[in-house]
Every structure is written in structure tokens, then in C-alpha cells.
């Protein structure tokens, strides 16, 4: 079990004059599966990007702590796994090449065993040497999970995790979410009832628009 905490304090986001949401606060500790829901355009992706440090909030702040020590913005990426429909991996490389470069750029050891285990789990082991541009959209989505999990992050952020997946893909995703939720913090942003059913607590974004 990790000693990771993520806290949001009165987070507000506006794009120009348009208010996306305001006053979101939460405190997630150590482990569990938490949800973010809301209709299209309600700011689910914006909120998860703010949590991941990819966007700055207009007001308020997000504090990440590991072993009670605050994590600086430059090192946050090492603690986060992120999956989203707008995440694109390098299509000119094979799955193995992608993962190898990711480990090296991240500055961590390429754990062959862990990677092969993930490739097996997400049914991509036999296609690991094929270029990503030859993958179907579902296979690319599964590949994003491997990208998010390969460095054993303490916080897993999943934006519409089951989009483009067939039943088999959805089941292995739910399995991973449940497994990760037992030892780490998992945040799921989705409109799918089956995705949100896994969550112990859900933030409904339509409640944060005045």
C-alpha cells in the first residue's frame, strides 16, 4: 500500500470568461477508486489534467504528497499513470520500442518482466514488435494502459478508460482498476455507469457550476 495523498483545495477553472467548474475540494489518501462524472463539456478531462499537473487551475491548488513529503511539479510525472482518449503514443515505433523509450526518458530501468506481464494481460504480447500504426483503436487504448502502469505509479488517472474497448478489453481494464485500487489511488473520469460503479466516491461536476 502506498503512502500517497492527493488533495484539491477549492479548485476553479475558467477558460477566458467561461467558468468550467469552481470550488472543487477533495482529499484522497493511500488507496481507493474515485470517480469524476458529468455530462459532455462539464470539464472532466480538464479536472483530471489539473490533477495530473498538465494544466494549471485558475484558482485553488492541488497538493500531491508521498510519504508526507510534497512532490514538486518537475517530479510529479514519475508518480502518475495517465490514460485518456487524447493521449497518443508514437505510431512509428513498435509497442516494445515505445515502452523502452518511455522507461529511458523517464529515467527508470526497463523492467522487462513487468512489461511482458502487462503486454500479456492486455493481450498485446504477440503484437509487441508490430508498429503502433498497424494497431486497431482498441489495441492502442490497451497500449495506453501499459504506458500508464509500467512505472508502478502511486496515482492512476483514467479519463474515459473503456472507450474503444470491446467486452474482453473492458473486463481486463476493470480487473486492473480493481487491483490498482487495492494498493494505489485510482481516479476514473467517465460517464459510463459500469465505470463509475467501481468508485467509492464520485465528484459530480454539474454541482460545481455556481
Amino acid at each position: 500500500m502506498s503512502n500517497y495523498t492527493v488533495e484539491a483545495k477549492e479548485v476553479t477553472k475558467t477558460f477566458g470568461r467561461r467558468l468550467i467548474f469552481e470550488g472543487i475540494s477533495f482529499y484522497y489518501k493511500e488507496k481507493g477508486i474515485f470517480g469524476v462524472s458529468g455530462p459532455n463539456g462539464s470539464g472532466k478531462s480538464t479536472l483530471v489534467k489539473i490533477i495530473a499537473g498538465l494544466l494549471s487551475p485558475s484558482k485553488g491548488k492541488i497538493i500531491h504528497k508521498n510519504q508526507s513529503k510534497k512532490i514538486v511539479a518537475e517530479k510529479l510525472h514519475n508518480h502518475i499513470g495517465f490514460v485518456s482518449p487524447y493521449l497518443v503514443l508514437y505510431e512509428e515505433f513498435s509497442a516494445r520500442e515505445n515502452l523502452n523509450y518511455f522507461a529511458r526518458i523517464r529515467g527508470v530501468k526497463f523492467e522487462k518482466e513487468r512489461v511482458e506481464q502487462l503486454l500479456e494481460h492486455f493481450l498485446l504480447f504477440n503484437r509487441k514488435d508490430d508498429l503502433l500504426k498497424t494497431y486497431s483503436s482498441g489495441m492502442k487504448q490497451r497500449m495506453k494502459f501499459i504506458f500508464a502502469l509500467m512505472h508502478n505509479p502511486e496515482l492512476l488517472i483514467l479519463d474515459e478508460p473503456t472507450s474503444n474497448l470491446d467486452i474482453e478489453g473492458k473486463n481486463s481494464t476493470y480487473e486492473i482498476i480493481k487491483e490498482e485500487g487495492k494498493k494505489n489511488i485510482v481516479i476514473v473520469a467517465s460517464n459510463e455507469k459500469t465505470d463509475l460503479d467501481l468508485c467509492s466516491d464520485v465528484i459530480h461536476l454539474d454541482k460545481y457550476k455556481n
Partner: peptide, 16 residues
């Protein structure tokens, strides 16, 4: 253009 900037943001610090 390829949409991989987000991947890089998730992989490393801006200075890297």
C-alpha cells in the same frame, strides 16, 4: 501535430 506532446509531458520534466 501528432498529439504526442501530452505523452512527453507525462514522461519527463520540462527541462529534460
Amino acid at each position: 501535430e501528432r498529439g504526442t506532446a501530452l505523452t512527453l509531458q507525462l514522461l519527463s520534466a520540462p527541462s529534460t
